[in-house]
């Protein structure tokens, strides 16, 4: 399989579905199956796993027909990386450092996905966001968050 095959959506979806289905079937092996009359905890997941494997094989067999060239659009890597990093920063900071640093870090990182925003503008945006969010969520709504953890 050449690398360009990765640009065919049916191949990736089919293989991913197959992998998940087989993984589930393997995982539920130790679960109580019960009988059809008294279904055990593993009965429904096992049926779904088998169904997913079947459907994935059908995707691989049928949905690639008639596709002459790669049909996967190019991912927007810049947006993806900055957006996910910004949320990760929020998750890492919100309890350890507080809401204000978490928001500042999140806004600074996410705004990098759009080059037309200057660094100064992102700092101002972050500060405004942090101020309004602190007032709204902590002071007014009383969420159990701290502005800054020292």
């Amino acid at each position: 399989m050449k690398l360009s095959a990765l640009n065919y959506t049916h191949l990736i979806s089919g293989v991913a579905g197959l992998a998940i289905g087989l993984f589930v079937i393997w995982q539920v092996q130790g679960y109580p199956m019960g009988t059809p009359r008294r279904m055990g905890a593993g009965f429904f997941p096992l049926m779904l796993g088998i169904l997913l494997v079947t459907l994935s094989l059908l995707i691989l067999a049928v949905e690639g027909r008639g596709i002459a060239r790669p049909d996967m659009p190019r991912p927007a890597w810049k947006g993806l990386i900055w957006v996910l990093l910004s949320i990760a920063a929020f998750a890492a900071l919100v309890e350890r450092a507080g809401l204000v640093p978490a928001i500042m870090a999140s806004v600074l990182l996410s705004s990098r996905a759009d080059e037309s925003l200057t660094l100064l503008a992102s700092v101002v945006l972050g500060a405004a966001c942090a101020a309004i969010a602190s007032g709204l969520f902590i002071t007014a709504l009383g969420l159990p968050l701290r502005m800054i953890v020292l």
């Binding site: 309890e95 978490a102 928001i103 806004v107 705004s111 925003l117 969010a133 968050l145």
Partner: peptide
């Protein structure tokens, strides 16, 4: 470009606030 960073922050706070879970 001014909106989406705010949306991300709101998403984070909203999800966190459901059960205070990172």
């Amino acid at each position: 470009r001014l909106l989406y960073p705010v949306v991300i922050v709101l998403v984070c706070i909203g999800v966190y606030s459901i059960s205070n879970s990172v």
